[in-house]
């Protein structure tokens, strides 16, 4: 109880103090997670839409693989990227290990299956309703796909929010491939682990609550954005 109370106090102090190190950490967390989610969207939304719209032999196997990868243990994603980027690994020449780029790469591996899988489900729900109508009205395949994506946007937005949540809260992979280096690759989750290890439980808890507050704000923006978009959609 005492810890909880003192951490409430220290959060207020932390945020008001304008502590440079804290803002640096928050900013990097946001940068890495937003980059990973954006790349995940560019890969996952088209792929998920295709998976939702078309039937082909072996589709079920691909679906099972996507669902499995949605639960990919972060540490495993970290180890894979680590081995790829390690000095002796196949991509060692690039010298990307222990950089924010390595962290984004590992998170892309985690969030892309989530966006793909959830987009697929969202599109499948709308596809039957809209695809035939669109095609019968003379829409091209690309136009039809765009229409289905637009109709499935609430589900796709949920996919993006879930992916972003996974990225910003993730610790195992970014610790491994980022290295938690001060001023370089230290993010909120790895700081929380570090402060816990030091025995600074109240600081760790404060950082955790700041992380939650940021997630709340970001999700607020996203949800408000969706609502606005939906309303505008109705006017069309």
């Amino acid at each position: 109880m005492e810890t909880l109370y003192s951490s409430m106090l220290s959060i207020v102090k932390l945020i008001l103090s304008g502590d440079k190190a804290l803002y640096e950490i928050i900013l990097l967390s946001l940068k890495v997670s937003i980059a990973a989610t954006t790349i995940g969207m560019l890969l996952g939304i088209p792929f998920g839409t295709l998976m939702g719209m078309y039937r082909f032999p072996g589709r079920q196997v691909v679906v099972i693989i996507i669902y499995t990868l949605m639960g990919l243990p972060p540490v495993l994603a970290g180890v894979i990227i680590y081995l790829l980027l390690s000095a002796k690994g196949p991509l060692g020449e690039l010298q990307l290990l222990f950089t924010p780029t390595a962290m984004v790469t590992a998170q892309v591996l985690l969030v892309t299956p989530i966006i793909t899988g959830l987009t697929m489900v969202a599109v499948r729900g709308k596809e039957k309703l809209y695809l035939e109508t669109a095609v019968s009205m003379g829409a091209s395949r690309l136009q039809a796909a765009w229409l289905v994506i637009r109709e499935a946007k609430a589900g796709i937005m949920a996919a993006i929010v879930t992916a972003f949540g996974r990225a910003i809260a993730e610790v195992g992979a970014v610790m491994l491939v980022g290295g938690n280096i001060e001023h370089v690759t230290r993010v909120m989750t790895t700081s929380i682990i570090l402060e816990t290890r030091k025995g600074n439980f109240d600081l760790a808890l404060s950082l955790g609550l700041v992380l939650l507050a940021i997630s709340f704000m970001i999700n607020g923006f996203l949800v408000a954005g969706v609502l606005k978009y939906l309303q505008r959609g109705e006017q069309y």
Binding site: S86, A87, G179, N180, I181, E182, V184, R186, S191, L194
Partner: peptide, 18 residues
Amino acid sequence: ISAGQGMGETLRMAEEMG
């Protein structure tokens, strides 16, 4: 480089970075 990690991880990082 301030790693903020355990001994095994720090040793591994040092090796990777020379």
